[in-house]
């Protein structure tokens, strides 16, 4: 990469960092313009984490292949009882076992 290309990359990163910061402060700026939170908006806000995080999980389950889907199912089952670190460890064991057995 020559130096002008490299400067361009630095500018891209800075622009992306600024855009990311805007997303992180934007909701706060919008909501503090309102005196009170209407109940339906509060219900909507309460649903945000589950709604967003589901979109990072479901496509991986559908597109990840049999081994990933199996590991996620097992992790889901144990996740109702154990911490997320155990979910990761057990899910990882499942996926590596399947990959080892099916090579």
């Amino acid at each position: 990469m020559d130096s002008s290309e490299h400067m361009q990359l630095i500018y891209i990163i800075l622009a992306a960092a600024f855009a990311t910061f805007l997303t992180r402060i934007g909701g706060y700026v919008m909501i503090t313009q309102m005196k009170r939170i209407p109940p339906r908006m509060e219900a909507a806000l309460n649903s945000v984490p589950a709604a967003v995080l589901s979109t990072l999980v479901a496509p991986a389950f559908v597109r990840g292949g049999f081994d990933v889907a199996a590991a996620m199912l097992v992790a889901f089952a144990v996740g109702l009882r154990v911490s997320s670190l155990w979910m990761l460890a057990i899910g990882w064991l499942v996926v590596m076992t399947i990959r080892y057995l099916t090579v």
């Binding site: 219900a43 589950a50 999980v57 590991a71 996740g79 979910m87 990882w92 996926v95 990959r99």
Partner: peptide, 24 residues
């Protein structure tokens, strides 16, 4: 080395953590 499976499982753990909320 099985790294690809960790991110979705991690996010799934977070989703499960909110299962007591209304309309989850």
């Amino acid at each position: 080395i099985g790294l690809d499976v960790l991110l979705p499982i991690y996010f799934m753990g977070l989703v499960l953590g909110f299962r007591k909320r209304d309309n989850w």
